[in-house]
Amino acid sequence: MNKWVLKGLKTGIKTTLYPDKEETSPGISPGLPQGKQTMGDEAQVVSRCPTQALNHIKDMISVDYRRCIHCFRCLRGIHNPVDWDKGYEWAVSIKEIDDASRMLGKAFDHSLHIRFVDGGACGACISEIEQINKPYYNIHRLGFFITPTPREADVLLVAGPVTDHMRLPIEKAYDAMPAPKRVIAIGTCAISGGIFGPSFASEGGISNLIPADIVVPGCPPPPLSIIHGLLLVVSRKPSASLTSPKSTEGERPHD
């Protein structure tokens, strides 16, 4: 006999309590490197980074989250690993909203419709975005909904480096969205092109095509980071800046 009702009642609510409470379950986030004081081994640490996310500035090793793919090479297998942040509230607002007409009003706080477009992602970000719609993370409880059409969407989620073939669909989707609208770049690829960078086949990040408002770093970012990004859009979480804002804006990694 089908006992799923009973089983469900017995199991109780397992959904995460974030954002009301901190989520502390182990393995909820892979974490990101934090900068650290140099100890004379900066050249060795910096050279271990495959994506040139680590930089040596003065006496600090700083991390560029636009590029970090948290590969753990700066954590494991070296003597003096960098400090490791196990949190997940990584989303950052990178664009000041100055125009009042673009402001998402109070009405959107608990009714935000999301359209996700895969801009040539490897699949990791996609599976993390899938998670936010599932019972554990369940964005419906927050009033966030994924819609099939951009005509009803307030937020455009983009993952992947925006390949040549996906440029037009993303442009069209952004164009079809009613104002006011927001764009969230999910994952390192969507922020800076990631390990693909800009090339003949890749735009190298969504910002080169349409203005992104929020970036969620990570490769891939855990679901809670994505939820954090969505909460930032509706100002239900205070906007923070990247902990190590080593700005390289305007400069492309592989130029």
């Binding site: 477009v117 059409t149 951009p150 005509r151 037009l168 669909p169 993303i170 069209k172 989707a173 164009d175 079809a176 009613p178 104002a179």
Partner: peptide, 14 residues
């Protein structure tokens, strides 16, 4: 309300 007219959403086809 402001009303903007946009083409039909065609699924992003070329």
């Amino acid at each position: 309300r402001m009303v903007t007219r946009k083409p039909v959403w065609d699924g992003g086809v070329r």
